[in-house]
Design a protein around this nucleic acid. Structure first.
Length: 441
RNA sequence: GUGGGUGUAGCUCAGUUGGUUAGAGCGCCGGCUUGUGGUGCCGGAGGUCGAGGGUUCGAGCCCCUCCUCUCACCCCA
């Protein structure tokens, strides 16, 4: 037997998991701070719930099989379709409905750097409000999440479906070549204007003069979002759909600015994001330091999707954050803390005879809310201190014969290398102060 | 899914035209140091060379198949 993890799946060892957990808690806290409660749904759904939602290509990526009761089931592919199912199944839910969900999803894709077959998604969605306020709320949350993760160098690139529609019309396209055209537009950054002209020219029905106008508009759309929006209005304002999209984005910008989150938000008419189901605002987030890493947080407005099971159109907008990809990115950017242990204190086990005294101290520290580990066997002090140092545990307490008889302990600050003999009450006060300072940052 | 790389100790990697018993650095364990970490010195453990098959007197090295990871395309978190 070959002992190994499935292709595209991975283990997170405790040290990594501790770091990933810290990220997840930060994300969760931001979501709840904006008034979003959690939702949990099963990993498995009936296949028919998922089929027909992701297009032909997406469907092939489903993990689908028959369970022991011969039911046709599949692992969830995202968190949006399960949300739609929940809304249709639970009539008691009222609008507007906010929820976040942090859970693994499965896609049988070919794995690559930053791309896995099992990965954690963090979704927030707001259902039941097609307003600039709802749109802006997503950008505000997205920006807050990135900052909470300690990332400041990022751009949320924002576009609107209506702009894209107008650009397609300008290029002379009806619905026929739209998808292909938008896909190329999305890659414009990467392939450059010449390759874009070249490849776009192959789409049937394309208007070459129109393509030049599109290029001119898109390439001029850099810098201040207000100005970009103004230039878009000058160029596309005669198109009714574009005009209303621009008006909407202007309102969204007002609200984002009022929230103090405008710095990282950029209007960018080349963001095509997806295909079919987006109906309004769309956005993708890129890291300044790792632009080639792909989008780490994206989403948009999809007014047709959430209501698909209930038959009625429910306006909805959401964000999806790929925490595993972001984790890899943060690791590459060297933003991770190096702590392999959640403990703040190591209690040295001086000798087996003194173990009860050590356990008593450990228990009192824990009751004071200080995470404490006891070295699990009698060993040389050097060894125990080395363990604390390698694990990044900031404090060590030592209870030897002398300390025990005096009712004190030795408190060693591993970073400073200083040590003092004090009572446990004093130790709790000192450690507690340092810990709350750390977590307060 | 298509095409190209890759795989040797826990990690990063050497390994000559195919030739005895496969190496280094880091890490790990022990000692110098019987109540005190980071540096130093000494010693030690650890490898079916990704797996299976083939060619050869002889394979880590050559050939085939599979697996893994990875790069590009595609798509996406």
């Amino acid at each position: 037997m070959k002992v190994q993890c499935l292709k595209g799946f991975r283990d997170y060892l405790p040290e990594e998991m501790l770091q990933k957990d810290r990220m997840l808690r930060a994300v969760q806290q931001v979501f709840e701070c904006h008034g979003y409660p959690p939702l949990m749904t099963p990993a498995l759904e009936y296949s028919e719930i998922l089929l027909g939602k992701y297009g032909e290509e997406g469907e092939m990526l489903l993990y689908r099989f028959r369970d022991n009761g011969d039911r046709d089931v599949a692992l969830r592919y995202d968190l949006t379709v399960p949300l739609a199912r929940v809304l249709a199944e639970h009539g008691e839910i009222t609008m507007p409905f906010r929820r976040y969900q942090i859970a693994p999803v499965w896609r049988a894709e070919k794995p690559a750097r930053g791309r896995f077959r099992e990965f954690m998604q963090c979704d927030v969605d707001l259902v039941g409000a097609d307003t600039a306020a709802a749109d802006a709320e997503m950008l505000v949350i997205g920006s807050a999440v990135m900052k909470a993760l300690g990332i400041s160098g990022f751009r949320i690139r924002i576009n609107h479906r209506g702009i894209l529609g107008a650009l397609c019309r300008l290029a002379g396209l009806s619905s026929a070549g739209e998808v292909e055209f938008l896909r190329l537009l999305d890659k414009l950054d990467k392939i450059g204007a010449d390759a874009f002209r070249d490849q776009v020219g192959k789409i049937s029905g394309i208007d070459e003069a129109g393509v030049e106008s599109v290029l001119k508009i898109v390439l001029a759309s850099t810098g201040d979002s207000r100005q970009v929006l103004q230039r878009l209005e000058d160029a596309l304002g005669s198109d009714a759909e574009a005009a209303s999209s621009i008006e909407r984005m202007r309102k969204v910008l007002d609200l984002v600015e009022a929230s103090g989150a405008a710095q990282q938000c950029h209007i960018d008419p080349s963001i095509a994001r997806g295909l079919s189901y987006y109906t309004g605002l769309v956005y993708e987030t890129y890291l300044d330091e790792l632009p080639g890493f792909g989008s780490v947080m994206s989403g948009g407005r999809y007014d047709g999707l959430v209501g698909m099971f209930s038959g009625k159109d429910l306006p909805a907008i959401g964000i999806s954050l790929g925490i595993d990809r972001l984790f890899s990115a943060i690791k590459e950017m060297d933003l991770l803390e190096d702590r392999s242990q959640p403990a703040e204190v190591l209690a040295v086990q001086f000798s087996e005879d003194l173990a009860p005294a050590t356990f008593e101290v450990a228990a009192r520290l824990r009751r004071a809310g200080i995470a404490t580990v006891v070295y699990p066997r009698e060993a040389k002090m050097k060894k125990q201190l080395q363990f604390a140092q390698k694990a990044g545990i900031p404090f060590v307490v030592v209870i030897g014969e002398d300390e025990k008889s005096r009712g004190t302990l030795q408190l060693r600050d591993m970073e400073k290398g200083s040590q003092q003999e004090i009572t446990i009450e004093e130790a709790i006060r000192i450690i507690g102060a340092v810990v709350s300072e750390e977590t307060g940052q």
